[in-house]
């Protein structure tokens, strides 16, 4: 729970941007659904240190996923600023965001979100193709990645023939396809049994040790306790 001193971020100016891989300032997100607008985020301020392992916790529906989507460039804030890896998410075009997601961010979802019709290897290769990797690069790197998550044997299996734990490991391999500096995970173990859960967490520990920045949403305080820092999201805000 060693959160970075807030003062540094506010007074640090340009140096702060360098040590913080992510900076969120007064970010709001309002969903203009049918009927009443939903204020999912109401002024989030957050700094994430380069190479840190952070867990986002908080009650359901309070904006954890929404915040993670902003950090991953899946969506833009309604107001305020979100700066990730030096890029201003709120100012980027759709095409710029797509390139940003492809090259610099790895995203893992609670429900795996693999493409069911494709094989394990194809799921990983598809992500590489979005970053413009050649077919040969795709093949060799996919084998490497699947080995690192212990799924070499399932290379040519259909994604929908796997167990939940296996699917989530494929999803992690896919998130790492383009060797991103930042890995964002939205309740990656929410649907896993405890054995699969510890497998996945073991992989994440390894990735953290490699120096990647990890931000993970979780409901489990037990899991959160493994992180360097816990950030609580409550009612669309980050509690200091």
């Amino acid at each position: 729970m060693s959160s970075a001193p807030m003062g540094a971020a506010i007074t640090g100016g340009t140096t702060a941007a360098r040590e913080h891989v992510m900076t969120v300032r007064d970010a709001h997100k309002t969903y203009e659904g049918r009927g009443v607008p939903v204020h999912a985020l109401r002024g989030v301020d957050l700094d994430i240190d380069t190479g840190s392992f952070t867990c986002l916790i908080g009650p359901s529906g309070h904006g954890k996923s929404t915040l993670l989507h902003l950090l991953g460039g899946l969506d833009r804030p309604s107001s305020g600023s979100v700066t990730v890896l030096g890029e201003h998410i709120e100012r980027m075009s759709d095409a710029q965001l797509a390139r940003f997601r492809a090259h610099r961010i790895g995203f893992v979802f609670q429900f795996f979100n693999l493409l069911k019709g494709l094989t394990v290897a194809e799921n990983v290769q598809l992500a590489m193709s979005f970053a413009g990797a050649s077919a040969r690069e795709q093949r060799s790197r996919t084998d490497e990645l699947l080995a690192s998550v212990g799924l070499s044997a399932k290379r040519d299996a259909r994604a929908n023939e796997l167990s939940g734990g296996q699917m989530q490991r494929v999803a992690i391999a896919r998130a790492l396809a383009n060797d991103p500096e930042v890995l964002l995970l939205d309740e990656p173990t929410g649907n896993l049994d405890s054995a699969s859960e510890s497998e996945v967490l073991g992989i994440l520990d390894g990735l953290h040790a490699e120096g990647r920045t990890i931000v993970m949403v979780t409901h489990s305080l037990e899991i959160a306790a493994r992180a360097e820092r816990i950030v609580e999201v409550h009612d669309g805000r980050v509690l200091a």
Binding site: G72, L74, D94, A95, A98, R99, R101, A102, H103, F107, F109, N113, L114, L115, L126, A127, F130, A131, R174, A175, A177, N178
Partner: peptide, 16 residues
């Protein structure tokens, strides 16, 4: 829809 969303969130451009 969902598949499209997945592809986009892992980096597919609108053009693609």
């Amino acid at each position: 829809r969902r598949e499209i969303g997945i592809m986009k969130s892992i980096g597919s451009s609108n053009a693609r």
